[in-house]
Simulated assay, not measured.
Amino acid sequence: MKKRVLITGAAGFLGSHLCDKFISEGYKVVGMDNLITGDLKNIDHLFKLEDFEFYNHDVTTFVHVAGKIDYILHFASPASPIDYLKIPIQTLKVSSLGTHNLLGLAKEKKARILIASTSEVYGDPLVHPQSEEYYGNVSTIGPRGVYDEAKRFQESITMAYHRFHGLETRIARIFNTYGPRMRLNDGRVIPAFIGQALRGEDLTVFGDGMQTRSFCYVDDQVEGLYSLLLSDYSLPVNIGNPDEITILDFAKEIIKLTGTNQKIVFKPLPQDDPLQREPDITKAREILGWEPKVGREEGMKKTYEYFKGLTEEELFKSEHKDFSKHIRH
């Protein structure tokens, strides 16, 4: 019999690519998403498949899925600054109450669960590059704390279930990931720069542009997550690309890639914005036998081709949805 996997956040950027991966590997996939930030167009091609089913559900409420489940991947969470600053309560709840619900479901089903943590648990790091042993530099009450601390709690409760209940758990600390199906105006640097270039706008760089990021192409990220799920390692593992670049240099790369002649304009750096971000992937290499294969030049070409295929309406529409009906205080 085919194994069955539940993927939360299935209509999101990473979640939808994970659905594709598990379908291609011969699994039955149950996708779950409340569509606050996800989009059904990301998984529209899967609805015709016998091995795919979808639940429109909020995991912060009780989660029930009938039948056997072998694996759970918890990827339901706002993941961009625009989202988690606009819906802070929901962001906190999905990684706390939502994670609690899914850990309970994993315990009931005797399933292995992988939770999507983030490099944001390191905050604005005082150690570079960031290894899994670094405890982080995070402001609990800053505007980014709703995301950072939610993910830190998520890791804690996951390890509590692992140690107290003997639950099979995996924790992925995901670094900046990019590729097709990213939302154009979600506040993250790659879609923001590409969107500005395609609209003929100047590229906005915050601070002096000397802050760094390390970008991992989505295909590499998915392979790393898949390898981690099937491994025997229960402690956190960094999954990302250690090829570090300054934001200013990256903006120049975007201008070259798009063939545009936009200027670069500078704005004040947002509060608690990390100044350095580079994963130490020693554990991923040694434990999973994984490392990224897609270089930034190749990955950005694929990503740019995806965004060039958007309609004019998609290119110019505002990303500022009315979230009010979704928020439960």
Rank of each mutant, 00 (worst) to 15 (best):
F62K: 15
D124R: 13
I254L: 02
S214R: 04
Y55S: 00
D44N: 13
Y135R: 14
D124P: 10
N241R: 03
Y304L: 15
Y134V: 06
A11I: 04
F266T: 05
D219R: 13
D280G: 09
G9P: 02
H165I: 09
T246E: 09
R285E: 15
V222T: 07
I287L: 15
D70M: 03
V237P: 01
A116H: 04
S77Y: 13
A284Q: 06
I254M: 05
S16M: 00
K3W: 05
L310Q: 01
F62G: 09
G309H: 09
R181T: 08
A251P: 03
T60M: 11
K256G: 11
E201I: 00
Q221W: 05
Q221I: 03
K48C: 12
K48D: 15
Y304C: 05
D208R: 07
F47V: 11
D33A: 07
I115R: 04
G136I: 06
G200D: 02
D219W: 08
F307R: 05
G195Y: 01
I245Y: 00
K48G: 13
M182Q: 14
Y122A: 10
S156P: 01
P268Q: 07
E253S: 13
S131L: 05
D148R: 03
P191Y: 09
H45P: 01
L203E: 07
V30L: 00
F13P: 00
S156A: 13
D243G: 02
H100M: 13
I43D: 01
V294R: 09
P236I: 03
E253W: 07
V29T: 05
R183G: 01
M300T: 00
E319T: 04
M159A: 08
L92Q: 10
L167Y: 08
S96L: 11
R188L: 11
E133W: 11
H320I: 14
R144Q: 11
E313L: 07
G179A: 09
P268D: 06
E319P: 06
T282S: 15
V121W: 00
T91W: 11
I89F: 14
G26E: 11
K28T: 11
L235C: 06
E312W: 05
L167E: 04
H100R: 15
I281R: 07
G142K: 02
F52H: 04
Y217H: 15
L97Q: 12
E108K: 14
D51Q: 14
L235G: 02
G240L: 05
V138F: 06
L248C: 09
G9D: 03
G240Y: 04
V65S: 03
G67W: 03
P125Y: 12
H165C: 13
L198A: 04
Y147T: 04
